[in-house]
Design a protein around this nucleic acid. Structure first.
Lengths: 165, 165
DNA sequence: CTCAAAATTATTCCTTTTCATACAATAATG
DNA sequence: CATTATTGTATGAAAAGGAATAATTTTGAG
């Protein structure tokens, strides 16, 4: 195994490397929409926080947000600070565990994220149209499976690890 | 189209959002190996630069490196500075265009990256084993197709755009 | 040939992220 | 219970990253 000559058509190692394909695909696919989001003056992290909160009616803890946004906890704490300042989210105590801070969308935040989600859905629809519905479903299933099983390889390492570029 | 109730099993929007699945899959899949890389004292950007240079015997320009590493040009210029300092790469003029700077691996850099690539291949092999060879091939094809066609949707936007977390 | 426009990289300045740590609350142990 | 360990969040200093810009070279137009 680990065939020494399995580098894909080009000579470069990276062109056949799965983790690179994943990162590149994510980057390329997100580029257009992230551009659109930032054109509205919304940093990508903010979009992720708001999008993660949408549908979480009980709110999410800072830690959950960090995982969901593929970011570290301190970065989320600071982003939440700003969003509280803008009145888009609020913090409130968790009844069961007073260490936790639950972050919820305010009505203003909800309205804001609804617009963004509309744009996201439109963009996704264009993507599906360009790639093909069947292909997208295949991809979605493969990604879900990868997400499920990826962390399982090396149990010793804690589930947190390091987000990604 | 853009079915308003197409959010996946959970209530949260993001759980059914393709760009999120891509980013999450990339993050989860890379987490383990990135941890391994950083445990050796190698920042992820450095790994990407070195890996991108492997097999590019003529060297790569700073701009090409930026694209390949999903980073911005100034970040790469600075990373290259450090790597030159460590003797892992060198800069030399491009004969055809003196604006360009070609970056090449030094013998020391080559040796260094060879070790890392060995580890990367081993990690990938474990991943393939965990997920299944067929599934991985399906995924690889879908990703390649996505990378090919993704930028095609909105021709006005330049190919650079924004990498991704 | 001359001059304006475009391209490539380095640099500066500012924002964001990260690491380390501190603090508070819960869980676990004896 | 009392004590220790663990978990969750915030904060401060340091590092990294990004936008804007300058300097140099090439390309294109007249």
């Amino acid at each position: 195994m680990t065939d020494i000559a399995a580098d894909g058509p080009s000579g470069r190692f990276v062109d056949g490397y799965l983790l690179y394909l994943l990162a590149r695909a994510s980057s390329v696919a997100s580029a257009e929409f992230h551009e659109e989001v930032r054109a509205r003056g919304v940093p990508v992290v903010v979009w992720r926080v708001l999008a993660s909160l949408k549908g979480a009616d009980e709110g999410l803890t800072v830690g959950d947000l960090a995982k969901s946004c593929l970011a570290k906890q301190p970065a989320i704490s600071k982003t939440v600070d700003k969003l509280v300042g803008k009145g888009l989210v609020d913090r409130h105590e968790d009844a069961e565990d007073r260490r936790r801070v639950r972050v919820r969308l305010t009505p203003a935040g909800e309205a804001h994220v609804d617009e963004l989600i509309l744009a996201a859905r439109a963009h996704q629809a264009r993507l599906v149209e360009a790639i093909g519905k069947g292909e997208i479903e295949t991809l979605r299933r493969a990604l879900l499976r990868l997400i499920e099983r990826a962390g399982a390889g090396a149990p010793p390492i804690d589930a947190d690890a390091t987000p990604d570029e």
